[in-house]
Design a protein around this nucleic acid. Sequence first.
DNA 1: CTGTTAGCGCTTTCAT
DNA 2: ATGAAAGCGCTAACAG
Lengths: 338, 338
Amino acid sequence: MKQLGSMTIADIAKKAGVSTATVSRVLSESDKVKPSTRTRVLDIIEEYSYIPNQLAQGLAGSPTKTIGVIIDELSNHFFIEIAEGVDSILQNENYSMQLSSSRWIGDRELRLTRSLLSSRVEGVLIAPVDPDSPSVRLLKKSGIPFVVMNCSVEDPDVAYVSGNNRRGGELVAEFLNRNPREQIILITGFPHQSVSERLSGFFDTLDSAYKPIHIRGVKTFEDGHDLVPLLLTRNLIAKIKTTLFVTNDNVAIGITDRLVREGVAIPDQVTIIGYDDIRMSAFSRVPLTTVSQSMRDIGRIAAMELLDLIKDPKKERPRHNIEPRLVIRESAVEAPSR
Amino acid sequence: MKQLGSMTIADIAKKAGVSTATVSRVLSESDKVKPSTRTRVLDIIEEYSYIPNQLAQGLAGSPTKTIGVIIDELSNHFFIEIAEGVDSILQNENYSMQLSSSRWIGDRELRLTRSLLSSRVEGVLIAPVDPDSPSVRLLKKSGIPFVVMNCSVEDPDVAYVSGNNRRGGELVAEFLNRNPREQIILITGFPHQSVSERLSGFFDTLDSAYKPIHIRGVKTFEDGHDLVPLLLTRNLIAKIKTTLFVTNDNVAIGITDRLVREGVAIPDQVTIIGYDDIRMSAFSRVPLTTVSQSMRDIGRIAAMELLDLIKDPKKERPRHNIEPRLVIRESAVEAPSR
DNA sequence: CTGTTAGCGCTTTCAT
DNA sequence: ATGAAAGCGCTAACAG
């Protein structure tokens, strides 16, 4: 017996005493096959556990039933939750997802995009490093259906699903205006459109008396952890009543943990507001007050829209801005104490 | 100009005034091309942003440079950390990974496996629902290089990388023997080989005076959360000094959080020991004492072994049992109080 | 160094 | 209802 995987449709055809065309027909569920021969073929297929070669199928023109998904980080719960949302939709439609991570590297993102195009996925979902990145331009040029996640794109010809980041920033500023503090420190990680939007909403709304300090490049749990000593010595957050607005829950959780270890009182002395509301945020050292934008929804909506676009490519490009809301937990509470 | 993606090697060949073979050669970096024609071809490729069709390449025999990865859950940090480890290795070797989740459903796992085989990945990494699942048998039959993760397999012909789960269970039991408590409750989720092994190591080592209660089917953060009221009323854990051994950190974190909310003192009244040491465990409501088995290492080692296996398919199948260690944090401390 | 050509495994008219 | 045959886009001998 031939090695599994090297068996071809021709082998099956021969054993069943039919032509390859017929085998192909039973494979594609086409009903134009006499039931008796159909079952005969199916039996042979079963007997030899024959698996059709997807490459050949794709090349010969049948749809690959695969969509590509590119996210920025595997190790960031934010993106994983998006991927879950996507997965949950695709599974119903019997599509499979090809997931990969750009690691925030534009070049890698472009390579991944090329690779997806070249493997003839039917569509792609991408959370790009930049809304105007080469990969997005490539996708547009390619004509393949795609939707951008976690970015809003100017170009009306590209579909996207994003949180309303400006609004999120405003929510935080409003909270701060209601609950004044002596000092505000902004902590951000990768420079990304979503972050700038959050900040611009934030600054436009914040009482102008505030002069927030801005610390950049803080990207991970560990970075957050390591930042705390600096905050303590340089920004005197143990003396000055401070609010930390951290534009990424992962980092906020790291900071919170270290702050607790250092004996800083949260939220009395230091108040922390995160962004994203990843699942962990409710369970962290001090449950995190944060801006919630359901990532699962972003993933789900993006996937549904993509599927629609695949069915009808000339459909108008949908553009979603999911409304965020501020979830108050323990790290920063509404204090009518003024 | 042709639509990007429908452009073929023949089009490029014609425009460059060479044969398809030559274009193919410059594509494959083969050095047997005169530099001048090489650059000419490259220019044309650039100009039209031609991307070769991977399906055709694969069909025609060139390696796909892709490996398939099947995990049980996307939403479980345990598996994500494995995937990260895998990704970190593959990226260096310029392989890409096709990641998908079985959702603990054997049938889905089998479908995914079939799909991977049928798309001619060069190898697969799988964390199977069961070490003896149909997918593993299929993989073996297929002759494709693969390594099982998070399971140990009897069959000496299959490679695996797993934690030493028995030993992990022993570590917990030893801790309990050293730090006696009035009541022990075992909390497990999906029935899985890794869990049974943990339990058997645990029971074999635990002082026989203990009669642990066993609660099954607790699978997620939320499940853990929701279990607490029951523990309180049915098992009186607020009265009886209890240790909870939870074989999955996700669940342990959920339980811990709820316990804190309910005002139960950890670790004085209730002590919690988890398993896995996912990254979050250090940052959770009460930092978790847990059995650590570096998942990133499991992923990394599995990926390296797979790559080796791809290079030399007749190589002996490696079998790794990663040694675990107990990480003491705040949810259960070593108490010389006896 | 480069071109010709025969497949790779499957789908899909077009006949029958 | 089924078969024959022409591709799908690319690679890999084999010639030259």
